[in-house]
Design a protein around this nucleic acid. Structure first.
Lengths: 340, 340
DNA sequence: GTGAAAGCGCTAACAC
DNA sequence: GTGTTAGCGCTTTCAC
């Protein structure tokens, strides 16, 4: 335990200046003489002064804290997002409060209200339901800037960071078409969320653009951690099996690979595989798996910029919503090949 | 945006009572007449009053916020821990600030200092180095209760939540011994952290208790996401190969399974496998994998109790450190069998 | 450039 | 049981 709580007055007293001057030094204000600055800084160091963040927040109306709400941090996608966000914001002295929405509107509302009450400077969130009216109403009533993480809520004033799922899916499909694959299975989580919607959109668009009818090869799982094993196995043993698969997320991918192996097919000789999302698993698998990958650092930088633009006044709080689109890169590895 | 900021004075005025009474209602104080309570609550609802968390924190010296510091939230173990912790604390109106330590002492120090500055009511953390003197010194200088998450830092005043790795490893080894396996490989992350130390301790203790010399079958990986593929393959193709494996974490497990499959061994007929840590992967794998599992909810409840005991005064802030040991359960599945 | 003083929104101590 | 008042520790006018 430390001896006693040092206040800014103690610093000012020791430095022989006023509280105001000490405050100005603390806040890196411009109009401070080098002499005063030196004295104050010395006193601060001497006393091991630790300013009260709470008092500063109350007076300056800025908590330097960002509220984050994702459905579930055990989803590796969100864990990665959060980690890079924390890195990015930490550099500017911000910290992140993390809440779980669990795709439950009530819980999401509660979390967002807490962010409001606690005076978050900004919010980054990915609500489970983009059309929930209570959510839209609450978000529009909140006083801080909001960035949506891969969600479209056109009735809100929130900025959005969107992944280019359509482009990514088209790229993957087109290359598979070029390899001679015309029956591509698609394994996804069965949610009515933007990522899933847009991936299916891109998948169908790719087929249409190639002059083909999109086949009935979409597998939708109840949760992101479901097993696609049984369904894919049935499909592979059916009359018109796919010759390639695009799968979202590690769990679905792993169980899909098991099903493929079970039928005696080898990757990539007999069957091509593409992962939506890159991970240690895709990279270290044998063979390494071709993946659609996003640049988490870049995404975090975008999210931070969207928020800080508004916080700094570079962009008016009331200015219309802005959108940043983040691309997918197609990382080509050994899990796909020309159809034999 | 909402029209204007409602303060507690507005509520009091509308209810026709003093701010003191309004505050008492807000804080669920006992000595408030039902009449006043009703009037205040009505006014609050009417005005959609949202109390300023910052002002309450400043005045009451409690932020109702817990600082969490784990090495990396992308580690599924910590993601799961954080999720259950957030659940547990949310029920009591606490929120969690999450920082990454990345096993970097400088960064850990910075995070902990921030927790102090920001007036966290408590801290839950798992520093990468249990003996770093600066860390010990800083933790002892901090004014809020601290709970260590599976770390032993005897020179600090922090409470600790410890997993019973030794017991867990002994249980797994003993059953494998009973199955006739005498050469058990152990694949771990190569850190000098409590979990790894204790697992090796339990492994060796099990061998000694069974009257055997611990074999030289421990594989240590540079990171928790490394591949153990090459090393295990070499071991399996060597002169005295293991007949069973205990592996820590999904990544190491996945690459180990690949190596086993590569040598033509089948699980469990030719080779038994145990996972340290249970996950969707171990449960949905074919065959399902025997796992050492902890009860995340129970662990979170323990951590919360350790902290809240001190915050509520049930346990003195200065009372000596306490320790809670969380057991591992051995979930027996089809990935192990009698040696043939 | 610096000091004095007001007050951010609330709780707690003390009257009554 | 309720009202009044003094701060929590800091930033921010506003004089000078």
């Amino acid at each position: 335990m430390q001896d006693k709580k040092i206040r800014i007055q103690d610093v000012a007293a020791m430095a022989g200046v006023s509280v105001g001057s000490a405050s100005r030094v603390l806040n890196q204000a411009a109009n401070v003489s080098p002499d005063v600055r030196a004295k104050v800084e010395h006193a601060m160091a001497q006393l091991e002064y630790q300013p009260s963040h709470t008092a500063r927040a109350l007076r300056s109306r800025s908590s330097r804290t960002i509220g984050c709400m994702f459905s579930d941090i055990t989803n590796p996608l969100y864990a990665r997002a959060f980690r890079t966000l924390e890195d990015a914001f930490r550099a500017d002295g911000y910290m992140l409060l993390l809440a779980h929405g669990l795709n439950d509107v009530e819980r999401e509302l509660e979390s967002l209200r807490t962010f409001q009450t606690r005076g978050m400077d900004g919010v980054i969130c990915a609500p489970g339901h983009e059309r929930a009216p209570e959510l839209v109403a609450l978000m529009n009533s909140m006083s801080m800037p909001i960035v949506l993480y891969d969600r479209e809520m056109p009735d809100t004033r929130a900025d959005a960071l969107l992944f280019d799922h359509v482009r990514g899916m088209k790229d993957a499909c087109n290359q598979l078409f070029a390899f001679g694959h015309e029956r591509i299975a698609l394994a996804l989580w069965n949610a009515d969320s933007r990522p899933v919607r847009k991936r299916i959109e891109g998948y169908k668009a790719a087929y249409c653009a190639a002059g083909m009818e999109p086949p009935d090869l979409i597998l939708r799982q109840p949760t992101p951690t479901s097993s696609v094993y049984e369904d894919l196995l049935r499909m592979l043993e059916g009359p018109a099996p796919p010759t390639a698969l695009i799968a979202q997320g590690t769990h679905i991918l792993v169980s899909a690979l098991r099903a493929v192996a079970r039928t005696g097919r080898r990757v990539p000789q007999d069957f091509s595989v593409v992962s939506i999302g890159d991970s240690d698993f895709t990279q270290t698998h044998d063979p390494p798996i071709t993946a659609l990958r996003t640049d988490a650092e870049l995404v975090a930088a975008h999210a931070k910029a969207l928020l800080l633009d508004r916080l700094s006044g570079r962009v008016q709080i009331v200015a219309p919503p802005r959108t940043v689109v983040a691309p997918y890169a197609l990382i080509e590895r050994a899990s796909w090949a020309t159809r034999r």
